[in-house]
Design a protein around this nucleic acid. Structure first.
Lengths: 143, 143
DNA sequence: ACTTTTCAATTGTATGTACAAATTAAATAA
DNA sequence: TTATTTAATTTGTACATACAATTGAAAAGT
């Protein structure tokens, strides 16, 4: 049986984008029950684990730009999932009761996602792949 | 020296998205001189290599949805980079003179991109990583 | 003390992508 | 042959993300 590969599968851009879309879709399915998108959940986790964190640091941790973080926060704040407090030129971000309530559910969904893709890829393969991807991202970002 | 990792680096979703953003940015820089975004270049390559190809097949090759392909095509057609011809319920997509002119430049940029990331990651590592990413994407899509 | 520079955060705008619905045409069933 | 179903494509809409420009405040230089 002939395995039909994409003509672009040797390209990191192509493959990385493809994987990103696929795993994002799986995550959206998993997080759908919460009613909060995966990126927003990362934000909530970050704020939950470090109340009073500032947008810039959130952006670093999430590997996103500050402007994106502002948008994500605005949405979550509108849903009372977090609170921003201005402090001079800084902004301090805090979780709310709602955040704390949903936090365990987020963790659970996150674990389910992990289980789902490791079931397909194998745990060790998934680990190594994730590690390779992460370190490549770091190296290329520092380029 | 302590290496500071992201708290989410063990998550495939997080890492894959991060890599996707970083490599996309590099690609955008590389393709900027052409004035055509990376995804549009993939489209042009696909059509160049298979004149008369249909949107559905393009979508499969590019691992995108048909609706996304429609948007990409609309943009490129507006810039006279390709031509759509209706044939019953099908649409046949053809390259134009402009496509053929720019094609070698696209290939060159693509090679440059490859050189850039392999310079950072090492050729063998990059190859294996790309391969692992691609096969994970395929497996997870078939989930 | 005042000016200039730097820096954090936000806003305007644009892009790539997807889903769901609509359209249109072909294929199949009656 | 006509009616129904299926399939290809496009459109309406929405979302995550980024860049460039703006705002507002702190820091540094004079």
């Amino acid at each position: 049986m002939i395995e039909k590969k994409s003509p672009y599968c040797g390209c990191l851009l192509y493959s990385a984008n493809a994987l990103s879309r696929v795993i994002t879709k799986m995550a959206e399915e998993e997080f759908a029950s919460i009613g909060v998108a995966p990126s927003h959940c990362f934000l909530l986790m970050t704020v939950h684990n470090q109340p009073g964190i500032q947008p810039t640091e959130i952006a670093e941790k999430m590997m996103l730009t500050p402007s994106t973080v502002t948008r994500l926060m605005a949405k979550m704040e509108a849903q009372r999932y977090l609170q921003r407090i201005s402090d001079g030129k800084f902004t301090l971000v805090y979780p709310t009761k709602k955040t704390n309530e949903v936090y365990p559910v987020i963790l659970e969904s996150w674990r389910n996602l992990y289980r789902r893709y490791t079931a397909v890829l194998g745990e060790e393969v998934a680990r190594q792949l994730t590690d390779g991807i992460y370190s490549a991202a770091i190296k290329l970002e520092a380029r």
